[in-house]
């Protein structure tokens, strides 16, 4: 288990290799990568700036990761979230989950992203070509996505 909050980009292959190196108890690895879209609400954006709450961000990501390990039999996991100014097409977030079997890895990755989006203290601000910009509004669908996990006993599947 480990989390990182950083300005630098990440290398998905290197992160997976680090989790699996020297191990033969992993049968399934799921990676999720979130990237910056070039438009938002039908309007072009030139870049996006991610602000966070240093200290709480890491603590919250560690709490979310520990909860995933409590719910599923994971051999390893990794969460990386970037901060600072990012351009369309750039990576924002990486979640890697590794388990003996695919279901735990798939579900834990979805759970981690749903919880991260509703609980990790990051805020996105978009800039547009005309120099305007604004803070991205939170979406109710993100809270609903998290809530579906809360009504389920640990280790069961959300459908």
């Amino acid at each position: 288990m480990s989390v990182a909050v950083q300005e630098a980009d990440f290398d998905i292959g290197a992160e997976v290799a680090r989790l699996t190196s020297g191990r033969d108890d992993i049968g399934a690895i799921v990676t999720f990568t979130g990237t910056v879209r070039g438009q938002s609400g039908g309007r072009a954006i030139t870049d996006m700036t991610l602000e966070h709450y240093p200290g709480m961000t890491e603590a919250e990501l560690e709490r979310i990761e520990a909860e995933a390990h409590r719910r599923w039999p994971l051999q390893a996991s990794r969460i990386i979230h970037r901060i600072g100014r990012l351009s369309p097409g750039e990576n924002i977030v990486l979640v890697v989950t590794a388990s003996a079997h695919r279901h735990a890895a798939f579900e834990a990755a979805a759970f981690l992203m749903d919880y991260l989006k509703s609980r990790a203290p990051f805020w996105k601000k978009e800039s547009r070509p005309d120099g305007s910009g604004g803070w991205v509004d939170a979406r109710d669908t993100d809270d609903e996505a998290m809530a579906r996990w809360e009504s389920l006993p640990a280790g069961t599947t959300a459908r």
């Binding site: 991610l50 709450y53 709480m56 919250e60 979230h81 977030v93 805020w123 996105k124 803070w135």
Partner: peptide, 28 residues
Amino acid sequence: AIDQTHVKPSAPIAGAREIAFFPPVTGG
């Protein structure tokens, strides 16, 4: 958030070292 943990409006602030205010989060 009180001391870097999310809290509800009803949370007591006694003993808090640090209280943060922010919009709903939009990471990921």
